[in-house]
């Protein structure tokens, strides 16, 4: 999977560009735009996850581990929390990038329309943007995994697999949210989605504490949420205690969301952009 195509150099010929697949050109557009605005995203993408890790993982973890050293899931709290934050961050970034920027593409900056005026298909625009969002998720996940390693919270070689797992978690959110965003007229529903969807998912899907701490019925709900799959998958891979079938089950759930989301987005994008 190559998410890092060469930037078109100044000498890139028109011919070379013509050979790029159309979706890749839509992708490149996003990349070039990002080169101008990346600074603002550094904090949300890299800094805040680390701050959460330090404040909650190290700080609160100290209190939690104080009594017994094996308080949460048999490991130190920091070890428990870090992979959960990895999946949670992937979700947050994927959702952020597939709400407001989609609205901008359709309505505020109309970049989608500009691309469609060039010989690009609706699916090119969709796939190009989705690939771009996953790039953002991959970047953030990679950096966060490196930070985790620096905090000595990566005991197992399987942790390498947590990287694709985090990206898959992001993808499972990005695609359906893009489909949703393309149907919206104002950004008001994004705020609702964030505050009543993303924040509760982030807080109750086993990210900060085992879902077993929740009341019985809520445990069932929590186990069914998409972020729970991502958290469990990432945590299992990082700590190396996940059975193969379980891993496949969680991954399959996320993959199904991705596929379903893409199919839905193809419909909503076409409905919105082709008139």
């Amino acid at each position: 999977m190559s998410f890092f195509p060469q930037l078109p150099s100044a000498v890139a010929t028109r011919q070379r560009r013509a050979r790029l697949s159309p979706a890749l050109r839509a992708y490149q557009y996003n990349l070039l735009a990002y080169k101008r605005t990346w600074r603002g995203s550094v904090t949300t993408t890299f800094l805040y996850p680390v701050l959460y890790l330090a404040a909650i993982g190290v700080g609160l973890g100290h209190l939690i581990d104080h009594g017994s050293n094996q308080a949460v899931g048999g490991v130190r709290y920091l070890w428990f929390l870090a992979p959960g934050l990895l999946a949670g961050t992937a979700m947050q970034i994927a959702t952020n990038e597939s709400t407001f920027p989609v609205m901008a593409g359709i309505k505020w900056l109309k970049t989608y329309l500009a691309m469609l005026a060039a010989p690009l298909e609706v699916t090119d625009v969709l796939y190009g943007h989705l690939a771009w969002i996953l790039t953002r998720v991959a970047l953030a996940s990679g950096v966060f995994l490196a930070v985790m390693a620096a905090f000595h919270t990566v005991p197992s070689g399987w942790a390498v697999l947590a990287f694709p797992a985090a990206v898959l978690t992001g993808a499972a959110f990005a695609a359906p949210v893009m489909a949703f965003s393309a149907t919206r007229e104002t950004d008001q529903s994004f705020v609702v989605l964030y505050r009543f969807g993303i924040v509760p998912l982030f807080l109750f899907s086993g990210t900060f504490f085992p879902v077993a701490q929740l009341p019985g019925w809520l445990q069932v709900v929590a186990r069914c949420t998409p972020l729970y799959q991502g958290v469990t998958l990432c945590r299992g891979l990082v700590l190396g205690h996940l059975g193969g079938w379980d891993a496949l089950g969680h991954a399959g759930y996320l993959l199904a969301m991705l596929v379903g989301g893409v199919l839905a987005a193809r419909v909503t994008y076409r409905r919105r952009l082709v008139q």
């Binding site: 209190l63 939690i64 609702v192 009543f196 109750f204 900060f208």
Partner: peptide
């Protein structure tokens, strides 16, 4: 109004999550 109302829920969710979920673990 939804912006106003929803803004209240974030700290509340934190209370229910970190406050209640970690209650037993922290002691």
């Amino acid at each position: 109004w939804i912006f106003l109302v929803s803004g209240f829920f974030e700290p509340l969710f934190y209370l229910l999550s970190i406050g209640l979920g970690l209650n037993h673990l922290v002691g």
